[in-house]
Design a protein around this nucleic acid. Structure first.
Lengths: 111, 111
DNA sequence: TTTGTATATAACCTATAGGGTATATTCAAG
DNA sequence: CTTGAATATACCCTATAGGTTATATACAAA
């Protein structure tokens, strides 16, 4: 499963967020998530196969930890787009700088 | 549909890549992709509803253009992870610097 | 006002992701 | 060597994503 597909699942993103903080046992995640234990285990398998998490066994317990490397690929895909929106935001900024009176009226509106 | 889910589909990422270059007609995309015209139109609808593309009509033709703003959200989710892998790569780099003899032997190997 | 072109929508089909429950597995403890 | 715990796997079920073909829509051109 491709990294993007793996990340499409909100629960899996949530798991990664939790693991970003520290290692966790499967049981910890089961408590933290609105999901059955097998459900959590299944997501962990997907994450493992994608290389996004690693496991360390300690007796019957399994400590899952984050492995962020595959996210580099996502970042790489994103890179050329980042330039585009930064250019756009810069242009907007310059525009606002050029007409400071309009700034107050525009506050809170979308692009 | 969430931005991450929209991007999970390879064809849709391909469409965005094509639109990054320049505006395109639906027909252009149909030619460029191994997909029927309705198939392309469906993906374009998903991209439109996600705010990732915009349309300009010219007679019967529709020019689709990229709208990169929703990608900011992806970038934001990624940000805290970026720090992590950068830290890891830095550590690796320092490690290699510390043992320069091993560098040649390690060339080409994965992490 | 018919015809052709470009695109969208409808209707349908199939594979599969993600959830649940039941069960297997693995190991420590007694 | 039986029991209890933590986790993984098997199996089933359902919703839906993504593909296709057929058709509707919108507009230019003739």
């Amino acid at each position: 499963m491709m990294t993007f597909e793996v990340l499409a699942e909100p629960t899996r993103r949530r798991i990664l967020d939790l693991l970003r903080e520290r290692e966790r046992l499967v049981g910890d995640l089961v408590v933290a998530l609105p999901l059955s234990q097998p459900g959590v285990s299944k997501h962990l398998r997907v994450l493992r196969e994608a290389g996004l998490v690693g496991v360390r066994q300690e007796a019957q317990r399994r400590w899952y930890r984050l492995q962020p490397e595959p996210l580099v690929e996502i970042d790489a895909w994103l890179a050329p787009y980042r330039q585009l929106w930064e250019r756009r935001l810069d242009a907007l900024e310059r525009h606002l700088d050029a007409m400071p009176d309009a700034e107050a009226e525009t506050k809170g509106e979308g692009l």
